[in-house]
Amino acid sequence: MATYFEALGIAPRLSVDPEALRAAFYQRSRELHPDRFARADREQQARALELSSLLNDGFRTLRDPVSRAEYLLKLNGFDIGEQRSKDVPPELLEEVFELNMAMEELKAGDEHARGPLEEARRKFSALVAGTDETIDGLFASWDASQSRDDLARIRAALNRRRYLSNLLRDAEKALAPES
């Protein structure tokens, strides 16, 4: 079974130029178009269809940096458990606690919690942005090194990002006016 990178005919790298990815996708899609296989035998048609489906899955997966990195981690034998996504970064315990507290108070109707929660939202939004920068740096580092250590660091950063963005999403939901 070919990898998504192979299906798209691109190098297995974490830093991917979105335009180049799109171009590769269109190019390969044309090559695998059913019209081209109208006269081919049944086996070749089935093969083209299979590759075409792999190509579509591949494009969807690789165009998003997070799912691209998760896919690459899986290819390299890393277990991407949903559980690990909830790791509480120890240095953020206080902030996570305060965020939860403010959300609970606001849900209970205490409008005084709105200010602290907005503050917490700003903080977590900045933390997500910071994690994104870290991840970009790690992508570049792995592309150059292809080292397993980098992949382990990427997995940790992705877990942290998911944890933080889940909290951020919860905070935004709590702050949103009742619809």
């Binding site: 559980q83 909830k86 315990l93 996570v96």
Partner: peptide, 13 residues
Amino acid sequence: GMVGAPECGDVMK
């Protein structure tokens, strides 16, 4: 004491 659980994301004070 403020602690967190890596397994489930819990925070306990």
